[in-house]
């Protein structure tokens, strides 16, 4: 029930019983009073939607418009309509495919370990613990650290000559690695930053979901002779599936937009993502197109392509969720 009245259309359409037809005037008056009350809903959402229209909806649509034009940052009014030219150009552009590949590999390298470790951590945190709050807060510290700060510190840690990681590698007998210049090494390093920042956060999300699992299930599993590990596999993980799906979606959306880490990892603020673009992501490419090469139409097309990728990911997740829901019914 709501404090506002119900939809006036439906109520008005409902046939009054023949014994007591309301006078038409009464009905009209009533309808008006309902509308007045309903309008409060719009008043409450208005501040949000005014801002939303100005700073979200309008830009989204305008980006779509720009993506169909050749626009230079220096001459915004001189837009030339090129249809899907920016998109076809993008699909033939090796930089785009390189960035898409990098985004995918970094996305996998960061999301998979991040969520797997988070799940394990959540399981550990779910035991009775001394210093529970300490562990939770400590694990969330990276989340509170900004991308810029985290990347700068990790760039130091991964540094070739003075980085702590190479120092340690050397101490145990390995060669120093030039993390930044290699394709895999740089992508691993960037994935480490992302994983470091987000693992604790996801662990807390999983922990919350785990605590929502009724204990009866564990008791029943114990009576059925399931070991702790079996309980984790057969009780915890299935119950967590919707949460896991959700975190995968959220992490993927984040991964598609990855920008700050590759931008700052090079240490010189270059938008190229390394000398041979070895860690240029789509987010970085888009920035490169718009703010280094001043080609806004291209950048807008890249942005919309990123959005379409996200839509596909969310769509797949939605299908999986719906199939699961149907299977459970």
């Amino acid at each position: 029930m709501t404090i506002a009245s119900d939809d006036p259309r439906v109520a008005a359409a409902a046939a009054p019983p023949p014994s007591a037809p309301p006078a038409p005037a009464t009905a009209a008056r009533r309808r008006r009073s309902r509308l007045t009350r309903n309008r409060w809903g719009y008043a409450y959402v208005a501040p949000f939607f005014v801002l939303f229209a100005a700073f979200s909806l309008y830009p989204f649509l305008y980006t779509a418009y720009i993506s169909l034009h050749e626009v230079r940052l220096s001459d915004i009014d001189g837009a030339v309509f090129v249809g899907f030219g920016n998109y076809t150009e993008l699909l033939q552009n090796e930089f785009f495919w390189n960035a898409a590949r990098n985004t995918l590999t970094i996305g996998i390298l960061s999301t998979v370990p991040q969520l797997a470790i988070a799940l394990g951590l959540a399981h550990l945190l779910n035991y009775r613990l001394r210093g529970r709050t300490f562990f939770r807060v400590a694990m969330l510290m990276p989340y509170a650290t900004s991308i810029a700060a985290a990347t700068l510190v990790f760039a130091q840690l991964f540094g070739h000559d003075y980085g702590l990681i190479n120092t340690l590698l050397e101490a145990v007998g390995f060669d120093r690695i030039d993390w930044e210049s290699g394709t895999w090494t740089s992508q691993i390093a960037i994935s480490v930053i992302v994983t470091w920042r987000w693992t604790g956060y996801n662990a807390l999300i999983y922990l919350a979901a785990m605590q929502a699992i009724p204990n009866d299930l564990y008791e029943a599993a114990t009576l059925d002779g399931a070991s702790r590990w079996q309980q984790f596999l057969h009780v915890t993980v299935p119950a967590l599936k919707p949460t896991i799906l959700f975190t995968i979606v959220v992490s993927t959306i984040g991964a598609v937009q990855l920008f700050g880490e590759p931008l700052l990892f090079s240490g010189n603020g270059m938008t190229s993502g390394g000398v041979s673009n070895q860690y240029q992501t789509l987010g970085l490419l888009m920035y490169d197109q718009g703010w280094t090469n001043f080609r806004l139409g291209q950048a807008a097309a890249t942005a919309w392509t990123m959005f379409l990728i996200i839509l596909v990911v969310v769509g797949i997740a939605g299908l999986i969720a719906r199939r699961r829901a149907r299977a459970e019914r």
Binding site: D6, D7, A14, P17
Partner: peptide, 17 residues
């Protein structure tokens, strides 16, 4: 007095006359 309430999306009155 013959008070009736029909919830939206319901064909049967919740309170009938």
């Amino acid at each position: 007095d013959a008070a009736t309430r029909i919830y939206p999306k319901s064909d049967r009155p919740a309170v009938d006359t």
